[in-house]
């Protein structure tokens, strides 16, 4: 698999180190255009946009192409972010992968599960990473932001934040930042039942980074991604501090709580199941977002001994 840090910032000495090229699919839409400006403002190197029917035009000085193959050919970008309505998502994503994109950030919510699964088969064949769908995106604070997160919540540092929820990723990162814990990467896996990058995938992507000092996992009810991650942490003998937060303890069963994936069937997907597996893996679980930095600080105290 491609190294996520290398994809996002490259290697020291390369001409485009920390200036990796990114293409925006759906750059002229309401959401896409707003967030293109915000990403550019953060320092992300947006080199092209794609909007069928608007090829040849420009948005804020950024050239627009008809298709992804044209955009990739012209720029050599390996990263793309998609802002198109869910109905058109699969087409846009396939277009991107076939053009050679290796990291695809899929923002749209409401993508049918079958479309996601179709895309993931192709991604596997093409050795591409999909983040999302229904993700806030991915960022290396103060280097690159590919997503819709508010910049003010994040600071550069050495903690990885892996989250199912968007707003909770902001909230928890904000709490970490306030407490002096900056982040080396923050990644939203997305709130859908099937995620291009699972919590385990995300953990494996970040765990060997030499800069990494600790990991914060922000989970929520639904599925068993947290449980399998906890088992994976036990199996891989990972020793750096990990702290978790799980949302949805008070949610009723069999009700979809805003995210397509946030639903409990019986005990499958329940908060109790997740908390008990994290406890087994010696990962403390915060009761509220503000408690995360305190638990992390506690873990660091122990880790030093």
């Amino acid at each position: 698999m491609n190294d996520i840090f290398e994809l996002l910032q490259g290697k020291q000495g390369e001409p485009d180190y920390k200036k990796k090229s990114v293409i925006v699919q759906g750059i002229t839409g309401k959401f896409g255009s707003l967030h293109t400006k915000l990403m550019v403002g953060y320092g992300t190197n947006i080199v092209a946009g794609v909007t069928p029917g608007k090829g040849g035009q420009k948005f804020e000085g950024i050239p627009i192409y008809e298709t992804m193959s044209e955009a990739v050919q012209a720029t050599g970008a390996k990263i793309s972010i998609i802002f198109v309505p869910a109905k058109f998502f699969l087409g846009a994503a396939v277009d991107a992968l076939e053009a050679g994109i290796k990291l695809l950030v899929a923002i749209p919510e409401h993508v049918p599960v079958r479309d996601t699964m179709t895309l993931l088969e192709l991604a596997k064949k093409n050795d591409a990473i999909i983040i999302g769908p229904n993700t806030p995106g991915i960022m290396i604070p103060e280097v690159i932001k590919i997503g819709i997160m508010p910049a003010s919540s994040f600071r550069a540092g050495d903690i990885a934040v892996l989250s199912k929820s968007g707003t909770l990723m902001y909230e928890v990162s904000h709490n970490l930042t306030e407490a002096g814990f900056g982040q080396c990467i923050t990644l939203g896996i997305g709130g859908d039942p099937i995620n291009g990058t699972t919590l385990i995938d995300a953990f494996d992507m970040v765990k060997d980074n030499p800069e990494l000092k600790g990991i914060v996992v922000v989970g929520e009810i639904g599925g068993d991604a947290e449980e399998t991650l906890a088992q994976h942490v036990i199996d891989s003998n990972f020793e750096k501090p990990i702290v978790a937060y799980i949302a949805g303890r008070a949610a009723p069963k069999e009700k979809r709580m805003g995210h397509a994936g946030a639903i409990v069937y019986g005990n499958y997907g329940s908060a109790e199941s997740k908390v008990s597996m994290f406890n087994k893996a010696n990962i403390p679980v915060a009761k509220r977002p503000a408690e995360v930095p305190m638990l992390l600080a506690g873990k660091f105290e122990k880790y030093k001994d």
Binding site: L168, E171, G191, E220, R249, A250, A251, M257, G258, R288
Partner: peptide, 27 residues
């Protein structure tokens, strides 16, 4: 945001409050 509203619901319940609804107005 779904996660934020769930989290708020949890904290409210922890403090003895009784939620009348979960209303997520989107990101």
């Amino acid at each position: 945001g779904a996660g934020l509203v769930m989290s708020t619901l949890d904290m409210l319940s922890d403090n003895g409050g009784k939620p009348a609804c979960f209303l997520d107005v989107g990101g």
